[in-house]
C-alpha cells in the first residue's frame, strides 16, 4: 500500500490555533503518513526559534473559558494578554498537554516537512535567521506539488 499523505496550511499564530497543526501532524506521522505543513501569514510565527512570543488573547475571543466573567474593557488593559497566555500554559501543563515546542520537536523528529511561505517572509520583512533551520521556503505552487497528491488536506 502506498504511503498516505497529509498536507496542512497553518495560517494562525496564536497559542490556541498553533496546537491543531502540530497535534495533527505529529499524530499523522505516528500513523505512518508523509506530512507537510505550509506556514503562511501569521502561521509563520510558529516557525520562530523562540516560541515564547506565541500568545493567546481573550480579546475578540468570546469562546475562551475565563475563570471569572471579564468585561471587554478589562480585557483591553495592558498585560492581560500575557496573563491569559500564562494561565493557558499552566492549564495545558496541568492537563498533560505537550508544550508547542515539544510538539514541534516531535514533528521534526518524525520527518514532518515544514515549508515557510516566501511571499509572507518578504511581505512582513521577516529575518530568516529568526526561523528554525529545518524549514524550506516556497510558494503556493510548491504547496500544490505536494497537496495535489494527498489523502487529507487541511486549512487551519
Amino acid at each position: 500500500m502506498a504511503t498516505k499523505k497529509m498536507a496542512i496550511i497553518a495560517t494562525k499564530g496564536t497559542l490556541d490555533m498553533a496546537y491543531p497543526p502540530f497535534i495533527l501532524a505529529s499524530t499523522a506521522a505516528a500513523l505512518g503518513y508523509d506530512v507537510q505543513i505550509f506556514f503562511t501569514f501569521y502561521g509563520l510565527q510558529l516557525l520562530r526559534k523562540d516560541l515564547s512570543t506565541v500568545m493567546i488573547s481573550p480579546l475578540a475571543n468570546p469562546a475562551m473559558p475565563m475563570p471569572i466573567p471579564m468585561p471587554v474593557m478589562v480585557q483591553m488593559l495592558p498585560g492581560m494578554e500575557s496573563m491569559a497566555t500564562m494561565m493557558m500554559k499552566q492549564k495545558l501543563k496541568k492537563h498533560g498537554v505537550a508544550s508547542l515546542q515539544e510538539l514541534r520537536d516531535l514533528c521534526l523528529e518524525a520527518d514532518v516537512k515544514f515549508v515557510a511561505c516566501q511571499m509572507t517572509v518578504d511581505l512582513f520583512e521577516f529575518d530568516k535567521s529568526e526561523f528554525i533551520e529545518q524549514c524550506e521556503y516556497g510558494g503556493a505552487a510548491t504547496f500544490m506539488g505536494f497537496a495535489g497528491d494527498t489523502d487529507i488536506c487541511l486549512f487551519i
Binding site: A30, V97, A98
Partner: peptide, 14 residues
C-alpha cells in the same frame, strides 16, 4: 500516565 492527546499515541509509535 498524565499525558494528553496526542502524546500517548506518538510515544507508543516511538
Amino acid at each position: 500516565r498524565g499525558l494528553s492527546c496526542p502524546l500517548p499515541i506518538v510515544k507508543t509509535k516511538k
